[in-house]
């Protein structure tokens, strides 16, 4: 049992890493032959990096687009980030003081994340515009996240899992001798679904996270009158200035 779970976890992590690396390699292999930042854009590389940062941390464009969606999306993503941070204590041997301190916040974040997800799911059915562009896959990802969240909250509040055993199991993977997986069904479900989530990231819309970093409309600085950027494939064109 421990061995199977460990193998799945390692496999999923490998798929995540390899899949993402492959995807990013594909993106990087293609040039950006022209300057296409959405204007107004910062004039420097540093400024453009700040712009991407603002999008990543504050969802700036989404804020301008749709306030309720921004709130729900923030609740979910921020909640998820805090929950993941809280999960660190299952892998580090001696949790540092800050990690201990944020545990209550992390539990609250779990609820925040669930509330956000429920809103996102409801929207998919209640807003006609959104329902129109929703496919099975869009709902499936939300349901998967909700299931992971629910099973997680259940183990936290109702059917407590032996945290120390979980920790022992996870650290045992490092030694390539997995052991001691707690046999609680809820926890096992939680773990299995999380493994599934990791594995599908590179093949699903969850790619939006790295996508933002590589999006030329957001990460390009505005400097086209100063810099030329002929792509390699364009240099063969006849005429001046290549």
């Amino acid at each position: 049992m421990s061995a199977i779970a460990a193998i799945l976890l390692v496999l999923a992590t490998a798929m995540l890493a390899a899949g993402l690396a492959y995807r990013v390699a594909l993106w990087l292999a293609a040039p950006v032959p022209l300057s296409i930042p959405t204007m107004p854009a910062p004039l420097t590389r540093g400024g453009a990096a700040m712009r991407v940062g603002r999008e990543m941390l504050l969802f700036h464009s989404l804020f301008r687009a749709d306030k309720p969606l921004w709130v729900a999306s923030m609740a979910f993503h921020l909640g998820l980030a805090l929950v993941l941070l809280r999960h660190l204590r299952y892998v580090v041997a001696v949790p540092p003081a800050w990690l201990v301190a944020i545990q209550p916040v992390g539990r609250l974040a779990g609820w925040m994340m669930m509330a956000g997800l429920l809103f996102l799911l409801a929207r998919r059915f209640l807003v006609p515009r959104v329902r129109m562009v929703t496919r099975t896959g869009d709902v499936a990802v939300l349901v998967l996240l909700l299931a992971i969240g629910t099973s997680g909250l259940v183990t936290t509040y109702l059917l407590h899992t032996d945290i120390l055993a979980v920790k022992a199991f996870l650290t045992s993977i490092w030694r390539a001798a997995p052991e001691g997986l707690p046999p609680d069904p809820t926890f096992l479900l939680h773990l299995l679904l999380a493994i599934l989530l990791l594995a599908i990231v590179p093949f699903s819309k969850l790619l939006h996270a790295p996508g933002l970093v590589f999006s030329p409309t957001r990460n390009q600085p505005d400097g086209s009158r100063r810099y030329r950027r002929p792509a390699r494939w364009a240099r063969t064109l006849a005429g001046g200035g290549q």
């Binding site: 989404l62 687009a65 807003v127 562009v133 819309k205 933002l212």
Partner: peptide, 17 residues
């Protein structure tokens, strides 16, 4: 030929914003 096309086709979450 275009990173933008690839990234844009990969990244949409159908949020409807």
């Amino acid at each position: 030929r275009s990173r933008a096309l690839r990234v844009f086709l990969d990244s949409c979450v159908k949020c409807g914003a």
